[in-house]
Design a protein around this nucleic acid. Structure first.
Lengths: 231, 231
DNA sequence: GAGTGGTCTAGACCACTCG
DNA sequence: GAGTGGTCTAGACCACTCG
């Protein structure tokens, strides 16, 4: 059992219990190390996490101070495909990859003019024989020339856009919904129509311009978001 | 000038430049320490930050791996009910609130003995006339005496547990799933059976003890998680 | 069994704050 | 000048992964 979590929770209890008044520093790192009978580095490790979680802040030369009480809530991190799919045989099938003209609907989400060139990419990602995720992506073809000349069966198109084409993604917006799969997506994922799925929509910006808009359908019976936090 | 920021930016450039292929581990910590002529702890410090920023993830015993850039750093915050429902008329209906004995299943999730006292709370939360969320909660009655004497139509039972009963919640674990609603929940939410919903499960701890286990069913057609970040 | 990351030690020197 | 946090070293033992 590691030592720093105990130090961390002990300090947190003291902080929440008001044992360390605002404006005054906590005991110094050497003092805490002595109190908990650990090296200073181990005491620091506990304080590092408290600082990152916002409980304290540090001033070099002055000390470590309690942060005012905060409301804390959990977050769900979207894990990369490779990380959550532990299966050794991860497959990516490109169902379609083609340049097209923006329809009026696509023009709105991509903020281009109808008829502007768009690269459409439709892929299916599996672990072994089990399909898990559908991706439908629209990329502004003017910003990503030659995208179709790259290998789109690679892990991440984002990587191609950033690493090979050299686009600078400055901002990402995303939403997460729970939806019933339509027949088309359900068939691809080998589940019944209407099965619950996560729908993750993501828009990537380069400055003010929209580079990419993508919808991911993830099987609800295979993916779970997990999180733990200390309030 | 510190050494670890240089190591960090060097590794970041390599990762973005595709020098470390996905699926393969980066050089090990001792190797990196040797390459940059620092101690292993200093190399670790650089990797710590890359991990926290989502560039790599680590598997004890196996190595440090590049994260696919596709999902980097995205997190979804769970907003409190009163925050995401902007409707002025938020209602909470207590469908049932009673002390019961733990069944064998409840005993497992609450980590108590079968037959131990449990407070069961079943609530429906609405905005105006539209039901949005179902809550089924189990609370360890030994840890929360008098819970039933409080007003359970208040905003948050967590508030009652912490504010009035004085419980100290030290840790929360939660998962998020996409599920099809069963008939029972669908009827309460005024949607058809099988409609997609978010199922948020949350376990609250006070030290090693489980205080509360709650399932929230949230209508998938009404709730969306949102997030934006800068990669 | 060899290699990996996780944790920890007992020091050290530094830049900075404060009275 | 005394005390603080920031960084770093050169080790050590551990739990875990993998072939």
């Amino acid at each position: 059992m590691a030592k720093y979590p105990l130090i961390k929770t002990t300090l947190k209890e003291r902080l929440l219990g008001g044992n360390y008044p605002e404006g005054l520093p906590l005991p110094s790192e050497p003092q805490l190390a002595k109190e908990f009978d650990v090296s200073r580095m181990t005491a620091r490790r506990a304080i590092d996490e408290l600082e990152r979680e916002g409980y304290v802040y540090r001033v070099q030369g002055a000390g470590t101070f309690p942060t005012g009480k905060r409301f804390r809530q959990g977050v769900f991190r979207v894990r990369p495909f490779r990380e959550w799919v532990r299966h050794p045989e991860q497959r990516t099938i490109v169902l379609r990859a083609a340049e097209m003209r923006a329809t009026s609907e696509i023009a709105i989400v991509m903020q281009v003019q109808p008829g502007d060139p768009i690269v459409f990419i439709h892929r299916l990602r599996s672990a072994g024989d089990e399909p898990l995720l559908i991706e439908k992506r629209y990329v502004n073809a003017n910003l990503a020339p030659d995208l179709l000349s790259h290998d789109l069966a690679v892990e991440s198109i984002h990587e191609v856009l950033v690493g090979h084409i050299g686009l600078h993604i400055t901002r990402v917006e995303q939403t997460l919904e729970a939806v019933n799969l339509r027949q088309e997506e359900a068939d691809l994922l080998h589940v019944g129509a209407g099965t619950a799925a996560f729908l993750l929509r993501r828009t990537s910006y380069s400055g003010p311009k929209r580079v990419s808009y993508v919808n991911y359908w993830v099987r609800g019976d295979r993916y779970t978001f997990q999180d733990s936090f200390e309030p």
